[in-house]
Design a protein around this nucleic acid. Structure first.
Length: 109
DNA sequence: CTATTGACGACAT
DNA sequence: CATGTCGCCAATA
């Protein structure tokens, strides 16, 4: 259905739609997400789009992290982002760094 | 149209 | 390993 989403640009819609397919307990980077939608150099803009995420339940944007393994930002705070991830079995250090990053990183099929 | 704003990233130090 | 720089991009003022 298109109604609440009509406020979003095509770019933002593409980002959100792609985030929806990240499996629980896995993470992807802003850069890989950018590549997935065909805008390989728009990693930063992807973050901007996620900042507008209209529905945190159906769009699990807490599973999008930085390429260096750090959590990255979150509209409701990095603390909450960490909480959600650990709740799915993804361990995060006290310094907000993903443990075993290479093992939990999801690669698009 | 130009300027600013960031949930970023590669690289240098 | 931590921090800073600079380039990039889409949205917005």
């Amino acid at each position: 259905m298109m109604s609440a989403n009509s406020r979003l640009t095509k770019f933002e819609q593409a980002v959100l739609a792609t985030v929806r397919r990240i499996p629980k307990g896995r993470v992807v980077t802003y850069a890989s997400l950018a590549r997935a939608i065909g805008r390989p150099r728009a990693a930063r803009a992807v973050g901007q789009a996620l900042n507008k995420n209209p529905h945190l339940v159906t769009v699990p944007c807490h599973r999008v992290v930085r390429s260096d393994g750090m959590l990255g930002g979150y509209r409701q705070g990095a603390r909450q982002k960490k909480k959600l991830l650990t709740g799915e079995g993804v361990s995060v250090t006290s310094s907000l760094k993903i443990k075993n990053f290479s093992n939990v990183e999801y690669h698009w099929q």
